[in-house]
């Protein structure tokens, strides 16, 4: 029972917030000197300070805070000598195709375009992967487009044994996959959301338009 109290409190708080919105507006009108409105010639968004509460896209990470050098990235210790010797990610990403999520590099395209040439073998620079070109279509419930899983792009990076049979049983209909499981780091979420593009990029997987009427044709 006690576990519900925080939720209840939050609900009350939220209600209070919405209820008092006019009051806040009134405050602003009443004391114009306290917080002047944003100056008309505001600085460009790139250099928006974190303290600016009226910043555009307040909850998104601004472009100037992506791919920070190790000394500023929050997990490396700036006091360590090693940190200063490490390569800043942006210097490596300059020539790579960009994407909208993760570390903002389109790794699959980078590989396709030969912008990078990662080894398939620890020591043999000429070893090439055994690429399997087989698409698996998974019909999904609801109105989302069906999922197309391309073996091709995955086998460029991975060995069959990385996924089969521990994560995915190689048999049609044998794998129960849900977005909840993926969000919790299972199934596709073993990589997607950690090192591969995260689930915010819905349409990269949900890419096959459903045939005919959409309603109630789940698997």
């Amino acid at each position: 029972m006690t576990r519900r109290i925080p939720t209840l409190l939050l609900t009350v708080f939220a209600a209070a917030l919405f209820g008092s919105a006019p009051a806040i507006a009134q405050d602003a009108k009443g004391k114009p000197a306290a917080t002047p409105a944003a100056p008309p010639a505001a600085a460009p968004a790139a250099a928006a300070p974190a303290t600016d509460v009226n910043r555009f896209n307040r909850l998104l990470k601004p472009a100037n805070q992506r791919n920070l050098p190790p000394s500023q990235d929050g997990i490396h210790d700036p006091a360590s000598e090693g940190t200063a010797a490490l390569m800043p990610p942006l210097s490596a990403f300059e020539t790579l195709p960009r994407s909208n999520a993760g570390n903002r590099v389109n790794w699959v395209k980078a590989l396709e375009d030969r912008a990078i040439n990662p080894r398939w073998d620890r020591v043999d620079a000429n070893a090439v992967p055994v690429v399997m070109d087989l698409n698996i279509v998974r019909e999904v419930k609801g109105s989302m487009p069906d999922v197309v899983y391309p073996h091709k792009q995955h086998t460029e990076w991975l060995d069959c044994s990385n996924c089969h049979p521990a994560i995915f049983i190689p048999q049609k209909g044998a794998n129960q996959i849900s977005m909840a499981a993926i969000l919790l780091g299972q199934k596709c979420g073993v990589c997607h959301g950690k090192v591969a593009f995260p689930v915010s990029e819905c349409r990269l997987c949900h890419s096959k338009k459903k045939d005919g009427p959409v309603a109630r044709t789940g698997q």
Binding site: P89, A92, R119, W120, W157, L158, V195
Partner: peptide, 18 residues
């Protein structure tokens, strides 16, 4: 750093071979 290593090696090298 995953990013540094995946520029040089495919996932398989560490996650399957090693």
């Amino acid at each position: 750093p995953h990013w540094f290593h995946r520029i040089r090696f495919r996932c398989k090298v560490c996650h399957a071979d090693l």
